[in-house]
Amino acid sequence: MAIRINGAEVQAPGDARVSLLDFLREHLHLTGTKVGCNQGACGACTVIIDGERVLSCLTLAAQADGRSVTTIEGLSADGALNPLQVAFIEHDGFQCGYCTPGQICAATAMLQEIERGMPSYVTADLAAERATLTAQEIRERMSGNLCRCGAHNGIVEAIMQVATERAA
């Protein structure tokens, strides 16, 4: 088996202790995925595995064997920024830029979750097939990604813009 990372297959590391996060950063030099706490409390290490956003710090690389991992490096094909990345720049959805890859990976998967009908804690009507995308919905769904510079407003605006454009 192998881990598929941004489309390329790589062998899992020999040391089973190696987290997916360290595997990406130290073994593969894919340093776009960030380390904020290494304990599942900040979301900076968010990557997408088989379409779902997860924390790479609490995932052993071995657990990703046979699965498909997308990192921030895999979101902008051939160096062209995707609409969400462009919107983050336009709305100044970051300052230092450190939590940003995690925010963007999380937002990417989150928009798909909403399309699939995933509710959130602030969704008023659980029976509704699909939650109405409000700023409050985005905030709750993005709360697993901490930002210390305080770019929250810009992040929510950027996500809202992309979601609105897609719906149009």
Binding site: T31, G32, S76, G79, G97
Partner: peptide
């Protein structure tokens, strides 16, 4: 003006000390 380092930061290309 948008940040000049924006493209690096949103694509994971901005390189920090441990990288």
């Amino acid at each position: 003006a948008s940040r000049l380092d924006g493209p690096q930061k949103v694509s994971g290309q901005a390189r920090f000390a441990a990288e």
